[in-house]
Nucleic acid binder design. Structure first.
Lengths: 342, 342
DNA sequence: ATTTAAAGTGTTCACGAGCACAGTTATCAA
DNA sequence: TTGATAACTGTGCTCGTGAACACTTTAAAT
């Protein structure tokens, strides 16, 4: 039995009333006699009416504007990928009356604040953003919440906020996964130390890095008696020449950011060290193919951004509710499958 | 600058002709004077016209029927997942005038032939199928090609056929990937033999398993001098008790089908053997979590089937051309990330 | 010069849903 | 019983596109 989609007209015929009455019953608008309501609901029960979204959206064609508040391309390849996903959604959604307004920022408190203020004052219908300085700029986030603008968040989650959807990873879980993979990679776990490195981090957004670190540690804590794990943080490249322990004692390095490529020169001298990092940016891919990096975890910034925009527009156009979060599993990328992701 | 979508009417106004003429220019139907054509094309160049797919599809609302020819649920969990993807597409596409007609078969030559004949005679607008007995049933596949019905193929590719799209994996590549992962897993590659097992295969569709095997071997052939790899095939469970070599000499097992769970009892006695298999079916997941299986490669039957249906309907509804193939990267699944896939 | 076909152009309806409005019944007070 | 008001119901327009149709202009043939 082929399932059919009934139209209001067909329902009206079946119920022996007019199109308008069916419409009123379905949307609870206007007055309907109990007799007419009964007949219509009877038919409705039988046929499982699904309104034609096509016709619906054709009719009620508003123009919505979604603001896009993400770091600009100069801030790194990662954000270019992110922007790419946004643009993909943009061209697909244009004909549905969705347009985007970009507020690209440089990752400083000042510029971010400026761009966010600008966006807020534009009267946007929704916003996709990568929030930074979430602690010191609460007044702006409060303002956003007051305006009841639906927000899609990438990378960092604003907790306890309404009208938002977070797109990203379960960071702790991702750290645990890195732990297991490192466990697979390192031949003899009893000798040698593991190194967790937070490279190239800027102040104001490093919470998710700690989660990754904790997940990584948790995995080993559960599996081994006395896992030897050291942690290094650095905002520039200094940590690389100035390490707490000698690299000859290190069996594996887990870099929680996309900056694992900064280690490539150093690793030349220690080919036995196993390495796991994040993100498919060109320099990392290059090192993966060369064998200097063993595993990259792909956080799929493109897919995240794309889904962020589509979730917002589904909400605006079809009134679908937005889930609080949409977590993407990371792709595990090694040299033998990297070309399937680029 | 917010991008706008122009309508035929607006274009007609700008070009100072009627809507009908604009339509004729855009679709090359009917006669248009060179003067009118020039004016319209001038405007078209300026504004980058994108037809409103919403209105387009609302107007030309045919009812298309896509046949779905896949093994029935009793043939295994894998096909249930496949059917699940089909169903997901079905509910989404119903309102676009797409309906599905199911021809589920049991994997015998007889039943498949019967179902396929039935499908062909239904006068379908498109077909999604998992083809089997591709060699002995060429007359039916020829018939399909003659009818010029667009076909989406899962699992097995029919080469040199027109109007088809293949959804699946690059099998050789997937075998190479398994090789690299096995290399990561096995601590000492110099001692111990690797086992490639084709378990639970039925005759008539095992080409892709050989490709996986070849990819696996190719990886090790390139990396090691004299890799020790043995191959075992079996259509039932006999191979499991009747092996060519002693399992105590085996360091890793790569099962090319979803039947790796059949080994679980055997593996209890040899916990050191590393194992890689395919597909997230419940029994495999259970063994993965228990640690009896180290890595599962997820072929995403659900996503494949979903994309197969949407590719066909995009073609029917919007006349988009269907690509020859859409290859999906396999997910690498270990116990620490398995819950993100279920 | 008049007929006739072809070429070119504009108008109209339909698709399905939403909404405004006109039109039709029912209800009650005078 | 009439008039007025409320309750209810049906019709028609709109969105943007495709396609059929009707109409006007041009060109060729008689």
């Amino acid at each position: 039995m082929i399932k059919k989609n009934y139209t209001l007209k067909e329902i009206a015929n079946l119920a022996e009333v007019s199109r308008g009455t069916v419409d009123r019953v379905i949307h609870n608008r206007g007055k309907v006699s109990t007799e007419a309501r009964r007949k219509v609901e009877q038919v409705l029960d039988d046929i499982d009416y699904q309104p034609n979204l096509i016709a619906q959206s054709l009719k009620s064609h508003k123009n919505y504007v979604i603001g896009v508040l993400i770091p600009n391309d100069q801030e790194g390849e990662y954000w270019q990928q992110c922007a790419h996903g946004v643009r993909k959604a943009e061209v697909e959604l244009r004909q549905f009356g969705i347009s985007l307004l970009y507020f690209r920022y440089t990752s400083t408190r000042n510029d971010f604040e400026k761009q966010l203020s600008k966006a807020i004052n534009k009267g946007l219908d929704a916003i996709l953003m990568v929030p930074i300085y979430t602690d010191s700029l609460t007044h702006l986030y409060d303002r956003l919440e007051d305006l009841q603008i639906p927000i899609a968040l990438l990378n960092t989650e604003l907790t306890d906020r309404k009208h938002k959807i977070f797109l990203g990873q379960a960071n702790t879980k991702s750290g645990r996964l890195a732990g297991q993979l490192m466990d697979y990679l390192v031949k003899d776990m009893d000798q040698g130390t593991l190194l967790v490195m937070h490279l190239g981090i800027k102040s104001g957004h490093s919470l998710h890095l700690e989660e990754k670190e904790n997940g990584f540690k948790a995995y080993f804590a559960e599996k081994y008696e006395n896992p030897k794990i050291e942690v290094v943080s650095s905002s520039d490249d200094t940590a690389i020449t100035n390490l707490p322990i000698d690299l000859s004692e290190v069996s594996g390095i887990f870099v929680t950011t996309s900056k694992i490529h900064l280690l490539s020169n150093l690793l030349k001298q220690y080919p036995k060290i196993k390495t796991i990092g994040y993100d498919l940016i060109p320099k990392n891919i290059e090192n993966l193919i060369k064998g200097k990096i063993d595993i990259l975890l792909n956080q799929k910034p493109e897919a995240q951004a794309y889904r962020g925009i589509t979730a917002l527009s589904d909400h605006l156009l079809y009134n679908k509710d937005i889930p609080n979060r949409k977590l993407f599993p990371v792709d595990i990328v090694v040299s033998e499958n990297v070309d399937e992701f680029i």
